[in-house]
Design a protein around this nucleic acid. Structure first.
Lengths: 161, 161
DNA sequence: TATGAAATACGGTTTTT
DNA sequence: AAAAACCGTATTTCATA
C-alpha cells in the first residue's frame, strides 16, 4: 500500500512541490541523477499514485475573489451536501469530518453580498457557521515521506523544546 | 490591482490548474494560440502575480500520513502561533480567521499517537478542538476569474434552483 | 522562423536483492 | 542469478530570440 521511497524520491518530491514546472534536465541536476534516470523516477511516482497531479497556484484576490471564508456545516445528509458542493464553484475545498460539525468548506467569493448568497445556499441544508480568513499563516506546505526506519524522529520534533 | 483577464487568459488558467506540466506547445494547441503567444501570456500572468507558482499534488496517505485533521485554536497571540506553526512540519495549511475560533490548521500525521503529540503542542498555547477528516468531498477546485462585466451571473448561479 | 535546449526511446552497464 | 536502476547517445519535440 505504501511504496518504499528512498532519498532520491524524497528530493524529487521536495523539488516538484516547490516548482512543478522544472524541466527533467534541471530536476536531474538538482537531485544528482541523469535526465532519463529522473524521468523514470517521476513516472513511477506518478503511476504509484504518490504524485497525483500538478497544478498552478493562483492568487484568488487577483481573480476578483476579495473574500475567503471557512464554513462549518452541521449534520446533513451526505448526498445532499455533495450535490450542492458540486453545484457551487465557489467551494475550493470541502471535507467530511468527524466531530460536532460534520462538514468544513473553504470558499472564495467576490464580496459580502456574494458571501451571503453562498451561506444562504448551504443554510437551506443545515446550520452554518462562518469564519472569514484574515490572513494565511501557511499555505501548501510541501510534505515529505515519513521516515520508515525511525518514525520517532517525527514525534520528537513535535514536542515543544 | 486586479489585472484584466480575457478569455485566452481564462482558458490558460484552467488548463494550468488542471495540469501544470503541460508544455507551452501543447498549451498553445488547447487554447488556440501560437507557442510564442501562449508563452508570453503565461509569463505575464506570472509577473502580474495571478499565477503564484506551480506545485505537485501528493497523496499524503502514500507518504505515510494516515490521518488528516483540522484543528481549531482559541484566542492566542499571533506571534506565538506563527512561531509554533513554523516549527511544526505537520501543518499543511494555517489560517488566521475572524470569529470565535481565531485559528484553523490543517495537519497531516502518521497515527493517533502522532495526532495526540501535535494537539498537545498547540494545546500549550490555547484550547484546541479537533476534527479528523473522514473524506474529502472536493479538493483543489480550479478557480476562474470572476466575469468583470456581469458579476450578477455568479450570484445567480449561487441561488438554489 | 531559426537556433539551442530538452524530452523520449534504446542499448549497454552497474548495482541491488 | 535475477532484477532493477542508471547512464550515454540519437532522434524528435520544444523553448527562446
Amino acid at each position: 500500500m505504501i511504496p518504499h521511497l528512498d532519498d532520491h524520491d524524497t528530493r524529487i518530491l521536495a523539488e516538484l512541490q516547490r516548482d512543478a514546472r522544472l524541466s527533467m534536465a534541471e530536476l536531474g541536476r538538482r537531485v544528482q541523477l541523469s535526465q532519463p534516470g529522473v524521468t523514470e523516477r517521476v513516472r513511477k511516482l506518478e503511476s504509484a499514485g504518490v504524485i497525483t497531479g500538478y497544478t498552478a497556484k493562483v492568487d484568488l484576490g487577483k481573480l476578483g475573489y476579495g473574500i475567503r471564508a471557512l464554513l462549518r456545516l452541521g449534520r446533513a445528509e451526505s448526498a445532499r451536501v455533495t450535490k450542492v458542493v458540486q453545484q457551487t464553484p465557489e467551494v475550493v475545498n470541502a471535507y467530511n469530518v468527524a466531530g460536532q460539525d460534520n462538514w468544513l468548506l473553504e470558499i472564495a467569493v467576490m464580496d459580502v453580498a456574494h458571501l451571503d448568497a453562498v451561506i444562504s445556499k448551504f443554510g437551506q441544508l443545515t446550520e452554518v457557521s462562518t469564519a472569514v480568513i484574515l490572513h494565511p499563516v501557511r499555505e501548501h506546505q510541501p510534505m515529505l515521506p515519513v521516515p520508515r526506519d525511525d518514525p520517532r524522529t517525527i514525534i520528537r520534533k513535535v514536542s515543544l523544546a
